[in-house]
Amino acid sequence: MARIIERPSISERLAKLNESVQGSQAWNSIFRPGSIFRKGYTDSPRNRSYVIMNSVLYHLHPVKVKRHAVKVSYTLCLGGLSFFLFILLTVTGIFLMFFYRPTAAQAWNDIYTLQTAVAFGLLVRNMHRWAAHLMVLSVFLHMARVFYHGAYKPPREFNWVIGVQLLMFTLLLSFTGYLLPWDQLSLWAVTVGTNMMGYTPVFGTQVRFVLLGGVEIGTDTLLRWYVLHVLMLPFVLVIFMAIHFWRVRKDGGISGPL
């Protein structure tokens, strides 16, 4: 005789979990009137709109988005993750700046001391390094995703152009950061890279001179690339990102389903 065991389905379990969370004391003390939300928060279409409309998030997101736009399988979150990695890199980068001096005599020692003598120094440097590589990868994959969805087609042509610039700036940011530890890896990787740029027709020598701040890589190059890496390129990148995100919304949100 078959015994039918009534097991709650996943959606039932989730509903139950939701109920118990929202019924909990912690939830009610956060969302009660006068707490984080001045008038309290209850789940209603009106309040859902207010969460976006009455907060800084309104600069980034509309109140409502197309249903297919929230499908993770469509965007794979790549654009958003690229932005998030940029934020993560800024935070970890600021931490690193406290312990680093961009001169040939001090740079390597500062990194070494950071790794051995500063609390969480090694961890934060690792995160900065791996997040940088991951960001190059995610921006690249985001570009591929956009192409394969035909999302660069009118009215989004210009945003694609901005996007390619963003990929370029991401590569430049990563490349300028590569030199800063001032070890054998960075010195020679940058030597190879800048030698290639030295073959620019007509202005080759000048391009290389401007990039290196001299005829060969030295302490001037280090200062130059440091300023590019921590200030100028992030500044330009932020402006381009602002245009990019603004255009995404002005062009009607993310592209439609295939």
Partner: peptide, 22 residues
């Protein structure tokens, strides 16, 4: 993250490679 020996312009490692994306 790798941290090799201090940069030395007189000692070229073999091979010398650019960052992976280049």
């Amino acid at each position: 993250a790798p941290l090799l020996a201090l940069a030395n312009p007189n000692l070229t490692p073999n091979p010398s490679k650019a960052p992976w994306y280049f």
